[in-house]
Computed example of a mutant assay.
Amino acid sequence: MGQPNSLNTGFRAKRMGMLLERFPDLAHMEVVDLGGTVRTWTRSPVRPAHVHLINPEPPVKGVADDVLPDWVTMEIGDACDLPAHLRERRFDLVFSNSVMEHVGGHERRARFADSVHMLSDRHWVQVPYLYFPVEPHWVFPLFQFLPLPAQTAIAARWPLSAWGKRPRSRAEALPLVMEVELMSRTQMRHYFPGSDLIAERFAGLTKSLIACRAS
């Protein structure tokens, strides 16, 4: 399981470099991160002036994300249904990394995109690409195109996954499998029609898509 995690760390570091190319003033920005972690920013080569994290659940006790630096604020909330006090706030940048594919169906994805547009004129929203041949959560070739029973059977037995450990049974695997809905270019252009759509590549193939609006 260490190899996929190491690859993901490398991808995230490269992606942060791409972010800095588009937003060179990041160190002076107030960023709202929808669904992210403290670790993303404490490991970033550039620290924003302030980061406001919005997550539906608190961080797991005993891990690095449990300790908040004084330049990070964490709030329990749903990015698809923002708390009332945030609907009137504006940030310099909305950031989201590998979150939108987890929110659950078109209606909630549309509401997530509405939140992005509401919070700032500038955004950076990354999602894994539907047609990359290896599904990134289960690290299994063409997993996303298999029937649900086959996905569930594989998930309960396959030793590699981004979840950190293999589900113990098909019953435990099923909700994890159903939670993930990878996205295409057509979908991202629908949710972010005025944004640049950046292709993040691996071995010449598009691995993820980033909707970016820098101005």
Rank of each mutant, 00 (worst) to 15 (best):
P136C: 01
F112P: 07
S120C: 10
R108H: 03
Y129K: 09
T186R: 14
G77S: 08
G104Q: 01
E57N: 12
V63R: 15
P133M: 04
A156D: 05
R22N: 04
V116Y: 06
Q126F: 01
R15E: 11
G62W: 09
G2P: 13
N55M: 08
H106W: 12
C80G: 05
S184N: 08
S169D: 06
G204Y: 07
N5G: 13
Y129H: 10
W124N: 06
F145A: 15
H117R: 08
P141M: 03
R168K: 12
D25G: 13
K165N: 14
W124H: 07
L174W: 14
N55H: 09
V127Q: 06
E75R: 05
L146H: 09
D70I: 08
L146W: 11
G17F: 03
V72K: 07
Y191L: 02
M29A: 07
M188A: 09
P147T: 00
L20S: 09
C80D: 02
D66A: 13
D33W: 04
L119P: 10
A211I: 05
M29K: 06
R201S: 13
L86F: 09
L174R: 15
R89D: 09
M183G: 05
S208K: 01
Q126P: 03
Q144A: 10
F23G: 00
V177D: 01
R22Q: 02
L34D: 00
A162K: 07
L82T: 03
R185D: 09
M16N: 15
D65V: 02
D70M: 00
P167M: 00
A49Y: 10
R157M: 11
A150V: 15
P149H: 08
P141G: 06
G17C: 06
A110S: 00
L119T: 09
P59N: 02
P193Q: 03
K165R: 15
L82H: 02
F91K: 01
I210A: 03
E88V: 14
V134D: 05
V51S: 04
L68M: 05
R157N: 10
T37N: 14
P48L: 00
K207Q: 13
A211M: 06
T37C: 15
M1R: 10
V127D: 03
V67K: 03
L19C: 04
Q144C: 09
P167W: 03
E172C: 06
L146T: 11
A155P: 05
W41C: 04
N5K: 13
V99E: 03
S98I: 12
M188I: 12
M118G: 12
K14M: 14
